[in-house]
């Protein structure tokens, strides 16, 4: 369990993280979302004890990272943005070193080592120098490093950056698998990743927490404006004129011709009004057949953009 309270980090005048608070419960995967430079990595560096906060507290399983750093750090596995690898070591040597500095009981080492090599699938490269590995394998060795010592909390900073699509899918399913046993914070600026893996999302922008909810709830909460696209077999001007006259329509825009003798239009309704029926009746009365009607769901991308432009702070 991770408890972050009023976390603030100032670099001189610049505020990198501005009183951020959140809790991650046992066995939860939290997505940590934000544009580049929003303060994601800084927050993660503070949680793992790499740098200190200007104000605020971080507790890992109830242990304060500042007051008992050595004890708290035993519970954390951290994969930073750039995996911290020694290029002059082989994978095996490197993992041995990590086992030693994480003070893992030597009796447990053999079993854990086999388990980790198996989970992240790097058994076949264990004898190779890290500098000769591909980016994807380096990332996996970084992940393996975070798993050493079976920490209950995993902090993963953009774990899929620089991987090819196949590897991304593999790492994602791996994280999902790990989420069954570990408490995970996963940062990303790639949204599908977060909606695919995380149970809860927090969005951070310019150091401030701007949203915190499940991906579904976020879509629901922010996706209320009902937009839809229509394909109508009629000339553009007439269609727009007809639709404009329907009560409850807020906005109409032609989107172009995608099929001969038809026109695609985007229609936005007033909030809480379902205009699909009146749309159908109005167009059929004018003898303009509707070939297609599709409501536009807000993706996490839209929500993200909306949230960070609104700059509304959640309390």
């Amino acid at each position: 369990m991770i408890e972050v309270k009023n976390l603030t980090k100032r670099y001189g005048q610049h505020v990198a993280v501005d009183s951020v608070s959140f809790t991650v419960n046992e066995g939860e995967i939290l997505g940590f979302l934000g544009p580049n430079g929003a303060g994601k990595s800084t927050t993660m560096n503070i949680i793992t004890g790499y740098i200190s906060a200007t104000e605020g507290t971080v507790k890992i399983n109830g242990i304060d990272i500042l007051e008992q750093p050595e004890e708290a750090k035993k519970h954390i596995g951290y994969l930073p943005e750039f995996p911290p690898l020694y290029m002059d070591m082989t994978v095996q040597e490197y993992l041995d070193f990590v086992f030693a500095i994480k003070k893992v009981d030597p009796k447990l080492k053999k079993k854990q080592m086999d388990n980790i090599l198996d989970v992240v699938k790097i058994g076949d490269v264990r004898g190779r120098l890290i500098k000769n590995l591909s980016k994807g394998y380096k990332q996996r060795v970084g992940l393996a490093q975070a798993l050493v010592g079976a920490p209950s909390v995993l902090i993963l900073d953009e774990p899929t950056v620089g991987l090819d699509p196949k590897q991304i899918i593999e790492i994602r399913s791996l994280i999902k698998e790990l989420g069954k046993k570990h408490t995970i914070i996963l940062s990303s600026h790639i949204l599908p990743e977060v909606s695919a893996v995380c149970e809860r999302v927090i969005i951070i922008n310019k150091g401030k927490l701007v949203a915190s909810d499940t991906p579904e709830n976020l879509s629901k909460r922010l996706g209320e404006t009902s937009k839809m696209t229509l394909r109508v077999a009629a000339p553009e001007k007439q269609v727009i004129k007809v639709i404009k006259e329907i009560p409850g329509v807020k906005y109409v825009e032609a989107q172009g011709v995608y099929e001969p003798d038809t026109i695609d239009v985007l229609v936005e309704a007033e909030e809480d009004i379902d205009i699909r029926r009146s749309l159908f009746h109005a167009l059929s009365r004018a003898q303009y057949p509707i070939l297609q009607m599709k409501s536009m769901d807000m993706t996490l991308e839209d929500i993200f953009l909306q949230v960070i432009t609104e700059e509304k702070e959640v309390s």
Partner: peptide, 9 residues
């Protein structure tokens, strides 16, 4: 790699 050392116990 200082991140590894400084976040280890």
């Amino acid at each position: 790699t200082d991140q590894l050392l400084l976040t280890s116990p």
